[in-house]
């Protein structure tokens, strides 16, 4: 029995690794550039790798570099990081419903690895997400992020410009690749994605709020509006049915 359980966990872990490969590819150019920029911002290779090891959140790491270059104080940098990353609270709340029951310790460990990308891969997976799957997806992503940050600092140069630019599309292409199959199955998904995109574009392009809040607010608004529409629709049908 124990063997069976271990076998299942390891195959789930492997499936997680496979599902995480596109994140690993997508992180490659971003982490490489982060390493390079960290070097030009005056961080040592140890500080660069330490930041990727401990923070593991791309956008906020980039922002911290430009704040360091501006000479911004530590407290303000930490506060900005908090605001930029607050969206993960919403993602973890959503994943808490999706992940299988397990010891809290396991969840405390794998929750460290919840990024926009790992969240997207896990959340669009069919059925429950097992602990093994979570660890698989997160391992590839974390490994790629940390190692490529160091490599970027070490070689001190980015990829040839055309390749760098074209690889910049990788994570967005992954998001599209994860979204489209669900869009084909359900009109609700199409509306959710459209509303999320429209709200976020208005908030970001119109400079209505900082980017960290824009994604959270757009997501919550879209998810609530569609859910309310769904509730009204089912009630209306219910009333009609009784007539």
């Amino acid at each position: 029995m124990a063997d069976l359980a271990i076998g299942r966990e390891s195959s789930e872990f492997k499936r997680g690794l496979q599902a995480g490969i596109s994140i690993g590819i997508g992180y490659f150019p971003i982490a490489l550039t982060f390493g390079l920029l960290a070097k030009t911002s005056g961080l040592s290779i140890y500080e660069t790798v330490l930041m990727s090891l401990i923070v593991f959140a791309g956008a906020s790491q980039y922002i911290s570099l430009s704040l360091i270059a501006y000479g911004t104080g530590i407290f303000e940098i930490i506060l900005t990081t908090f605001i930029v990353n607050i969206r993960h609270f919403l993602m973890s709340t959503s994943l808490n419903e999706k992940c299988e029951e397990d010891h809290l310790i396991n969840k405390l460990v794998y929750s460290f690895g919840i990024t926009d990308e790992t969240f997207s891969v896990v959340a669009t997976k069919e059925g429950k997400a097992t602990t093994g799957f979570m660890f698989g997806v997160i391992s590839v992503s974390y490994f790629s992020w940390v190692v490529c940050s160091g490599v970027g600092h070490l070689i001190g140069a980015s990829l040839p410009q055309t390749l760098q630019e074209s690889m910049g599309v990788a994570l967005y292409a992954m998001f599209i690749g994860l979204l489209v199959p669900s869009m084909k199955r359900s009109a609700k998904v199409i509306f959710l994605a459209l509303l999320g995109a429209v709200f976020n574009s208005i908030f970001t392009i119109g400079h209505v709020m900082a980017q960290g809040w824009a994604i959270v607010t757009a997501t919550l608004l879209a998810s609530m509006i569609i859910e309310i529409a769904e509730v009204i629709k089912t009630r209306y049908r219910g009333v009609n049915h009784e007539d």
Binding site: S94, L179, A222, E227
Partner: peptide, 17 residues
Amino acid sequence: GVLKNVPYATLGALIFP
């Protein structure tokens, strides 16, 4: 229900703009 909607709305917002 709202939390089940979150992934798809997030993906839309992550892609655009």
